[in-house]
């Protein structure tokens, strides 16, 4: 790929890495919270629902600043984590955290919708056949919500690829460490003669987004055929 300069290539690679980890790390808590919101009634359910959706409504800059306050090296969580060697501030891991938090509501929404579409009667049937709760989830619920999980993951990945405000506020725009695709485009546009590289990165963004969408369609269709449309 010689038409991308080393700086540009670095930004693309970093964005892919950040988005991948943001999505992957978001999946287990995302599935758990989606399940809790869809199936359990407990005190504070609405509060949890609100918290999950907060990044969607808040200005991204605010989310980024709150992350900086909490996970910065002097923040309550950040200083604790620093003692065991985990640092988020101004590292690529911080970018992944910011992108993960911003993408989380989309992930949870998609998975929650698919869990609500699973007939609890099927889970009851599995229980009468001897499956304990965790087994029912693993052998019935999880396979049936797989399309929803994949849709949510693709959506979260695309959101993470495009995340700008929270990332730049929390971890700044350091080439090679925290400079992702959107912050790189923004950076190029700030200097004279940067339109060329910016345009190339824009094309890469469009290509990645289209590929993700295309892949999700294929996977969803294959799974729907397996389940037989039922």
């Amino acid at each position: 790929m010689d038409w991308l300069g080393p700086d540009e290539w670095q930004a693309v690679a970093l964005s892919l890495r950040v988005s991948f980890w943001a999505t992957l790390a978001g999946l287990p808590p995302g599935i758990f919270i989606a399940y809790a919101l869809a199936r359990w009634s407990f005190p504070g359910r609405q509060v949890l629902n609100g918290l999950v959706h907060l990044p969607l409504i808040l200005p991204p800059v605010v989310t980024g600043y709150l992350l900086l306050l909490t996970f910065g090296t002097r923040g309550p969580v950040g200083s604790l984590l620093q003692e065991i060697g985990i640092v988020f501030a101004f590292r690529w891991t911080g970018a992944a955290l910011a992108c993960g938090i911003m993408a989380f509501p989309l992930l949870v929404r998609a998975i929650r919708l698919s869990i609500e579409a699973v007939d609890p009667k099927l889970e009851q049937a599995a229980a009468t056949l001897g499956a304990s709760r965790p087994w029912v989830f693993a052998s019935v619920t999880l396979p049936l919500i797989l399309p929803g999980i994949i849709a949510g993951a693709i959506l979260a990945f695309a959101k993470a690829m495009g995340e700008f405000g929270a990332t730049i506020t929390f971890v700044s725009n350091i080439p090679g460490e925290t400079q992702t695709l959107p912050t790189a485009i923004y950076g190029f546009l700030q200097v004279p003669g940067g339109e060329g590289p910016a345009m190339r990165l824009v094309l890469v963004s469009v290509a990645v987004a289209m590929t993700a969408l295309f892949l999700s369609e294929i996977i969803a269709r294959r799974i729907a055929r397996r389940v037989g449309g039922a």
Partner: peptide, 20 residues
Amino acid sequence: LPPHRRDLGYIFQEGRLFPH
């Protein structure tokens, strides 16, 4: 005793076969 420990065979009105 929860249902999965009762050693049942339950036949439901709507079959409730696992679609996947």
